[in-house]
Amino acid sequence: MIPAMHDAILSYLEPRRREALDLLQRLVEIQSGSRNKPGLDRMAVDVAEVLGGILPEARILPFTEHGNMVQGMTLPAARGEKGIVLVGHMDTVFPADTSFTAFREDEERCFGPGVYDMKGGLVVAFYALKALSQLGLLEEIPVTVLCNSDEEIGSPASRPWIEEQAKGALAALVFEGGGANNDVVTGRKGRLGMHLTVRGRAGHAAKGGAKASAILELAHKIIALEGLNDGREITLNVGQITGGIGPNTVPELATAALDARFLTPDGQLRLEQNLARIAAKESVGGTSTTLSVQSGRPAMPQSEGNRRLWSIAREQAHLLGYDLPEELRSGVSDANFIAGLGVPVLDGLGPVGDLDHSDLEFILKDSLCARAALTATTITAIWNHAQSG
């Protein structure tokens, strides 16, 4: 027997499936690559309009170098009460000149840029809030909604804002796409994006003898770097290399772009120590190496607080008639920053789908409103637990 509140939420959402899909199409068809400020600013206008129709306070935050961002709040949140923070991003990985722009659907799936990552997640959050508002359940709950425009490039502008709004919150819910098995995310690896620069001495390749080749030194370092992969705690990839000016010249400069992931703060420390050791070791005489960090997110361990949120959400899923597995995900999100504050966070609450960051990206249509119902019931359950605890 479905409890009365759950039934009321489902009764609100069920006849609005088409409406939710139409909103998803509207958002997907706005080209909003992370560097496309005009497109992101149009997204911000539409998102603020939607939130303004649900919450008593919704505003656009202007940014000069990045797309504008949006913040919405219930009245208790606007008064400064700490409660639940909902986070979703409006940008996609697809640049302004992409040919992948169309939204399409069949009986089971929707396709389009950002449909899974993560405009579908935004629609889930909005319809969860719509249902709670309609039932009068938001009047006492402090809820803050943050929609940023730079997540796919590491959230350089929005990170301080997200951390400021999330600090001291009871909980945070993040709307990256759900797992293929209907999973939600209780843990994520951390990430470091780095640049390795090797300098040697230029010379004529025909002269032979000892040569301070930057490329040769980089080759030694690539082998050492790839050797840091341990199968679980640390994964590292050398994804791009450049160097030299021609086959008959000893290369003076060589560079590599690195991506490293780690499960825990201890793993991060061990990774950083090994990176420093590899960068300092000189295998080819006359060369020197520098390692610089371009971007990063801390690890999001499967903490007690995160798993407690999952337990609350899983209970709501059971009341709605299904199970809700947890997932440890290698990819990063803004949930990593929030976890770094010590705030319990549950991620992957967006619709179920796959193949994000490709032109085959999709979601399962039925999961859009199903996840909205899960989110709505989880918000109320988190608040009720906090009030009774």
Rank of each mutant, 00 (worst) to 15 (best):
G72D: 10
F262N: 02
V184R: 10
L13D: 03
A254D: 13
L364I: 15
H195C: 11
I153C: 07
D359G: 05
A78Y: 08
G231W: 00
P142M: 02
P56N: 05
V50K: 13
S333G: 15
A212E: 04
T249E: 07
A299F: 00
V293K: 14
I382F: 05
Q316R: 13
G187V: 00
P38E: 04
G296C: 12
F100Y: 15
P160V: 03
D266E: 14
G168D: 05
S158A: 09
V250F: 11
I141R: 10
R16T: 10
T255F: 07
C147T: 05
Q316L: 08
G243F: 14
N148W: 01
Y116I: 01
A210P: 13
F126C: 03
W383D: 13
R79N: 12
M69L: 03
A157K: 03
Q294S: 11
G296N: 13
S34H: 10
E65A: 09
R159E: 10
V332R: 07
A256V: 05
I153A: 09
G187W: 00
Q387N: 11
A78G: 06
V343F: 01
P113V: 09
L146F: 08
A373V: 00
L269S: 15
N384L: 09
E108N: 06
P62R: 01
C147E: 03
M118W: 00
K119E: 01
T186P: 12
S133H: 11
H204S: 07
L228G: 15
D46N: 14
I9D: 04
V143T: 06
G200F: 08
L138Q: 00
A77I: 14
L75Y: 06
M194T: 13
G187K: 00
Y127F: 00
L349N: 04
L61C: 06
I382Y: 09
L269Q: 15
V184Y: 02
C147I: 10
A77E: 09
V45I: 11
V123C: 02
E108L: 09
I9P: 04
I278K: 11
A202N: 15
V115K: 07
R159W: 11
M1T: 13
M43E: 04
N274S: 15
I215P: 08
V50S: 13
S288H: 08
E151W: 04
T235R: 09
L137S: 10
A260Y: 12
M43R: 01
G353Y: 00
N306L: 04
W383Q: 05
G321Y: 04
S155W: 02
I234R: 04
R199M: 13
N182W: 13
E326V: 11
P351S: 10
E252M: 08
S158V: 04
Q273P: 06
M43Y: 02
E164W: 08
L271R: 12
L368N: 06
